[in-house]
Design a binder for these strands. Structure first.
Lengths: 155, 155
DNA sequence: ACTAAAACGTACGTTGACGTCAAGTATTGT
DNA sequence: ACAATACTTGACGTCAACGTACGTTTTAGT
């Protein structure tokens, strides 16, 4: 591993968020810095980055509130901990209760994602239809076939 | 046609929005009632319903702001009017300017929808992966195949 | 004609997700 | 050592998208 600790500024540049956003996520209980310096400056690690990325994805792509996101991420974290302590001191019923809760939450999430996918798909269809109808309205001659615009940047 | 005018309460029940939402959309310039009663009560028609549905879809599914939505819907409406006045008094260049602007906007929208679709798709994949991994963590015996939960309510 | 329910306009309140300042401490490059 | 940044906590500000309350009409049902 190269260097697995990131200062606030690092995160800001890497993920395009503001310091305030990191603080706010921390207030929400969504995020803890991996550690602090003697002086109290926050230090994040790769796991933090992954967590933040997941928050942003759920927020931007699914439009979930930070509260919902907290539930999901907590469930995922609980799973990771279960995996870590595979031979844990918890009873099996205890384990399974945690597991079922997390699994249920993720199943619900999956449903919502798929509903959204299908609705977005029909939305796309309607836009495509409108677009083609609009294009046929043009002064008939469209000499150059509109090339499909390809791009994959992420501002 | 059955009856093509709807009161506020009708719309509220049909689309699950509140009166305040309708008023707000009207303030934004997003929506105009088809007409009013003598006393000033709003009356909507099928076109209104379609417009409101489109607003809700763009908002919920794409997460667009009402400002963006206004741009899109105005462009679409301009197209519809062009279609209506096919032999309009506008010059061809005039017409094409309007057309190009609308088309450009809708192409941009289409791109955004497709970007979101692909990102949601990968999000789904990651959830599915986590889910299967979580399921293998269970106390091995899951005698009943988890039946796919089907539901289509909208609270 | 009359009453209850619904709608009106106006205006102020709320909530989530941050932005923005301020005053003081930490860290870093030279 | 020291200036220039960067970070800290705290507090207040902001903006979109409504919610809510109010006193006043309008409409619908009997």
């Amino acid at each position: 591993m190269h260097k697995s600790t990131f200062t606030v500024e690092d995160v800001v540049h890497l993920l395009g968020v503001t310091p305030r956003t990191l603080h706010y996520y921390e207030e929400m209980g969504l995020l803890e810095p991996a550690c602090r310096t003697n002086g109290g400056h926050r230090l994040y690690d790769d796991a933090s980055l992954e967590r933040i990325r997941r928050v942003l994805r759920l927020k931007d792509d699914m439009g979930s509130s930070l509260q919902e996101i907290k539930l999901i991420l907590d469930a995922e974290q609980a799973l990771d901990q279960l995996r870590a302590l595979y031979r844990s001191d918890l009873s099996e019923t205890q384990r399974d209760r945690v597991l079922d809760e997390s699994i249920g939450l993720m199943e619900g999430m999956l449903e919502r994602v798929e509903r959204k996918l299908s609705r977005l798909s029909t939305l796309r269809e309607s836009i495509v239809e409108r677009l083609t109808r609009a294009r046929t309205l043009r002064t008939s001659m469209t000499p150059i076939e509109q090339p499909v615009v390809k791009q994959a940047d992420e501002s």
